[in-house]
Design a protein around this nucleic acid. Structure first.
Lengths: 141, 141
DNA sequence: CACGATTATTTGTATATGCAACAATCAGCC
DNA sequence: GGCTGATTGTTGCATATACAAATAATCGTG
């Protein structure tokens, strides 16, 4: 049995990707704490800015995130006044929009993001950075 | 503002790593559901097998995971009878040990893990796989 | 236009994640 | 032996994650 499991530790991609996720997330969360948010939330704010007013489904797709997860993240961010919901033609849903406070927060968090980004790049090295980008491109492509 | 945020989406490493994490985790969780566990739990079982009876701190370090997170994961897994706690010399803590049921579960889950591993490798491609491994090695190194 | 199928989103439930504060024990020193 | 600082681990709190089921509105077709 130990032979099998040792092999898993050497090979398992999920183990590695999840570890990488924890390490990288920690870097960004630590930096963004100064601005009072987490990378998960920053990511949503940025995505909404780029998409413009958008439907939950589109946002979830853009972030490759489960719709129910996003639903509750948006809920919390609305409660904080960073996002708000607007009625849509299709009355099954609504549009998610950035508020002024949300936009201000992105601006305020920019310096923290840049610091985290530099630190992550430093720790990963140029090859590591390229590697991560390539891996994601492959999987989504 | 959109200029800045578009740049973030293009560059942000956390966004990519987290996306990769969600995609890869989903592949393994879907496969392991057949055996009644998740990749997060499978990972702990395998790590305990390799370390042997171990203290929470060592296990957390091996998995690059917060001790409090691990504490509660172990708790759930004890409740299911996969792990159990044994007294240690150092009475502040205890040793985490695999039970027979835990060992049997690993065995039962092997085929599912292999299927997930193959699927993840297929989606990432050889370069993607190498990329992920290299990135982790760099960060932990 | 009515009705069943489809689509959009939220809720129920469970797990996972981590920071900060806490309790318990240990180790070293006097 | 008994204090004091360090180490080990758990708990309180908040957020994040996702599958399945429920809800609500739209669409397509007879």
């Amino acid at each position: 049995m130990p032979d099998e499991t040792r092999n898993i530790v050497r090979e398992c991609l999920a183990m590695r990707v999840r570890m990488l996720n924890r390490m990288v997330t920690a870097i960004y969360d630590a930096a963004l704490a100064q601005a009072g948010l987490k990378i998960s939330q920053f990511t949503v704010l940025v995505a909404v800015t780029n998409l413009g007013e958008c439907r939950p489904k589109d946002l979830a797709k853009a972030l490759e995130m489960d719709e129910s997860t996003l639903s509750r993240n948006v809920e919390r961010m609305c409660a904080r006044g960073w996002l708000r919901l607007k009625p849509d033609q299709d009355r099954r849903g609504h549009l998610i929009a950035l508020t002024d406070r949300g936009a201000a927060l992105i601006h305020k968090a920019m310096a923290s993001w840049r610091r985290a980004q530099e630190e992550a790049q430093r720790q990963l090295g140029p090859e590591g950075v390229a590697a991560v980008k390539a891996a994601v491109r492959r999987m989504r492509g």
